[in-house]
Design a protein around this nucleic acid. Sequence first.
DNA 1: TTGCGTGCAAAGGTTTTGCATGGCA
DNA 2: TGCCATGCAAAACCTTTGCACGCAA
Lengths: 146, 146
Amino acid sequence: MSEIGGYKTRQRERILRFLTENAGRHLSVDEVVDHLRGQAEPVGKSTVYRYLDRLVEQGLVRRYFLGEGGGACYQYAGDVERCREHFHLKCIGCGALLHVECSYLDEVAQHVANHHQFTIDHTKTVLYGLCETCAAKRKEESVCAG
Amino acid sequence: MSEIGGYKTRQRERILRFLTENAGRHLSVDEVVDHLRGQAEPVGKSTVYRYLDRLVEQGLVRRYFLGEGGGACYQYAGDVERCREHFHLKCIGCGALLHVECSYLDEVAQHVANHHQFTIDHTKTVLYGLCETCAAKRKEESVCAG
DNA sequence: TTGCGTGCAAAGGTTTTGCATGGCA
DNA sequence: TGCCATGCAAAACCTTTGCACGCAA
């Protein structure tokens, strides 16, 4: 259930390389396709979808459903283990996705598990709100408006 | 920013009534449309989409992206003002929505604000995971499988 | 050579949008 | 009366699928 199994092709090599080189980020299918199109030889979108599905199945890559309407995001699993341990903050204002590694927040999951009998899935959970910049912007606006 | 604001129409009334009558469940757009079609007067799907968007914006209804490929689900949020103050836990297994009032979790929001310069919006944030029952069920299954 | 992988295009499903009409206030 | 809301259809998404060809093993 874990080994690659399939053929090794130029396309797959380049898709996987892009994922590993951006292990810290969440990538959309379009980002992958666009990156590869920027190179000498583009890769078909269906190929990207199919290979990503496969990688997810194998556990090498994790799929996230973060965006509101948008599509899925993918992240190389090498760093996903780390992502399992921390929270994701998504700014409603600018859309930025922040990975927060913080021992205090780690305790939160423990607390919820122990006191509320609930096991948080960090790969599915995103805290929505406003980043510093956008919060300041809104504050300013509301002062002007009110 | 919180009041209904728009016109009161037959369609909106019926959409909202269906949501409140099923406050314990999460409903897909098609479920809403199908239910209303079953009545004397159907309601257009775009009307449902537009009004649900509006209700979500106002915080009266929550939108969830649970299914893998599927569409969004909606659930009546009840008293929004109260919900602004606490966290929500959504079980991936059974869909239950738990409102958690807890002073410890209140501190979390404070911590994120103070240490990570991020203002959490409780009306938009949901912690996904497994409730006690579903966690036990999964554990059982994995024992059987492996 | 065998069979999987690729890429294009078409199909599938969900959500959004344009526009004329209808209805609330 | 002046907008806003509605509904239909079309468009705009994201994703999957069918099929002929290409390529790894």
